[in-house]
């Protein structure tokens, strides 16, 4: 989707769309309702109070601890493409004036995969929420754990889950939003143990990616397999929320679930980058 072009094509129904209209519609196709993926920065702008986002953890850089084939090249390519250093942007923001600790994943950075840096940023996001008594909101978009960091990536599943347990222990609400796609190691860790789980319509949500599942002998699957709707039907989601209602839904939940947090602590203690 090149911004400079006046027209573009819907990735789903292939109809031709006006760029301006498409952007005004939050990159949702006006014809078929397909929710196109959003870059993390744009997601933040669309969701939280204008100018309220303070990015944190900007100094974390992935390295190549396993000397994994082509990892350096892939990561450098992703850095050049996205202008960011990893698949997660984290920090603090406000939603209708209420402070929140947030992390937003960017699928365009190596499939949103979780290595040491992404795991650390999610962990810090949840720890800041627990420490400062502000609700946590995490937008997920990931193919899963980052293979190229091997076991270190697997351990990020445990680390991030531990941080979510800490939020639960101190009574700070944690909301996860599944956007397209939310898979594998991310789904099987911090994403699935949030207090509230919301998904965007038609988002791919599942445990085993197609190639891995095929390798394990999974063949016949239902038509809606691994969609937000399938997962919702099976009781694994609270709600499927269209993008245009996302901000107001999150805001309301922050207001209600976060209503008993000690507000004096929140106002003084919001960390700044």
């Amino acid at each position: 989707m090149d911004k400079s072009q006046a027209f573009l094509q819907c990735a789903n129904c292939k109809k031709i769309l006006f760029s301006i209209e498409f952007e005004q519609n939050l990159r949702v196709c006006p014809h078929c309702g397909h929710h196109h993926r959003l870059p993390a920065k744009l997601r933040i702008d669309l969701t939280f109070d204008e100018g309220s986002f303070q990015e944190l953890d900007t100094d974390l850089r992935s390295i190549d601890p396993l000397s994994f084939p082509e990892y350096e090249e892939k990561r450098k390519g992703a850095e050049a493409k996205t202008g960011t250093f990893d698949s997660i942007i984290s920090g603090s923001a406000r939603i209708d004036d209420n402070p929140v600790s947030i992390a937003v994943a960017d699928f365009t950075f190596m499939g949103g995969s979780m290595g040491s840096v992404a795991g650390e940023k999610i962990t810090r996001t949840l720890e800041r929420a627990a420490e400062h008594g502000m609700p946590a909101i995490v937008f997920c978009a990931s193919g899963g754990a980052r293979m190229q960091e091997g076991l270190l990536s697997l351990m990020q599943m445990a680390k991030t889950t531990a941080a979510a347990a800490r939020c639960a222990e101190v009574g700070v609400p944690y909301i996860a939003v599944f956007t397209d796609p939310t898979m594998a190691g991310v789904l099987a860790s911090y994403a699935s143990i949030a207090d509230i789980i919301i998904a965007e319509p038609k988002a791919l949500v599942g445990f085993a990616g197609a190639r891995v599942a095929k390798q394990a002998g999974v063949s016949k699957v239902p038509d809606d397999f691994q969609t937000a709707e399938f997962v919702f039907k099976h009781g694994m989601l609270d709600r499927i929320v269209p993008r245009k209602e996302m901000r107001s839904t999150l805001s309301t939940l922050v207001k209600t679930l976060g209503g008993n947090l000690r507000t004096e602590l929140i106002k003084e203690d919001v960390p700044h980058g």
Binding site: A188, A191, S192, P222, F230, G235, M236
Partner: peptide, 27 residues
Amino acid sequence: PAADPGVESESRGISEAIAAGMFKMFE
């Protein structure tokens, strides 16, 4: 070798079950 990746497991929330296992262990 891995958790079961089949349709039944997805239907019953294999990802949530694994995450909840870790979550419980941390408690």
